[in-house]
Amino acid sequence: MTKRLIALLLLLGLGTIFADLIRGFTPDPALNMSAQFYAARTVVDTGAANIVTAIIVTFRGLDTLGEVTVLFLTAAIVALVLGGNVSGVKPRNWPVGELLQTGTKLLVPLIVLFGAYVFINGHLTPGGGFQGGAILASAVLLLLLANPARRFGHQLISRVEAVSGLFYVGIGVLGLVLAGGFLDNRILPLGEFGSILSAGAIPLIYALIGLKVGAEFSSIMASLSESEDK
């Protein structure tokens, strides 16, 4: 009872701070300086139509590299903590319905295609690497659900992840050598605005990020589903 009372008092204090923040907030009438810079220079510098994509991949690309590294660390630690049992796991064999199995065979190619579409078109429409990677991971999850007795191909997932990470940093270094700086996207021609082969190296970088993030999410879920059953 006292624990709840103390928690309530603490949250009441936080609540007064939040109320003060809301009351003192007025939205700006126009964009601030950095947003105006991004809005004006996106087409000229990068040739992309999606400003958020241009910020994530090109203008602040080093932060994205750090985020992908943090995700990689997360997947590695989850696999380590759950003590991935390579052998000696008895496969759970509950009866999987026929509807799920047939539906999976029909749906998984479509989901993979949709995920690839989302991260290839990241610079033109809302979308990009993280969303496409999450969609790819859900296709892998559907495979896991429909066939729980199958040994999952960890080799393939870790190879995809390692290779795409290597190519991502390789493209960054190529930007150092051929164009303005690390992860510059002008190593490929900017192309015309609005077509799919435009915006330099942004589709390539985002596709690699999408594959890497999808592989990491799949690895987390495979570790969780293969941990030892009591």
């Binding site: 126009a30 964009l31 601030n32 950095s34 947003a35 105006q36 991004y38 809005a39 004006a40 400003i51 958020v52 910020i55």
Partner: peptide, 8 residues
């Protein structure tokens, strides 16, 4: 620049 929200 005067028709979009803040992208950052």
């Amino acid at each position: 620049a005067d028709a979009i929200v803040d992208p950052v």
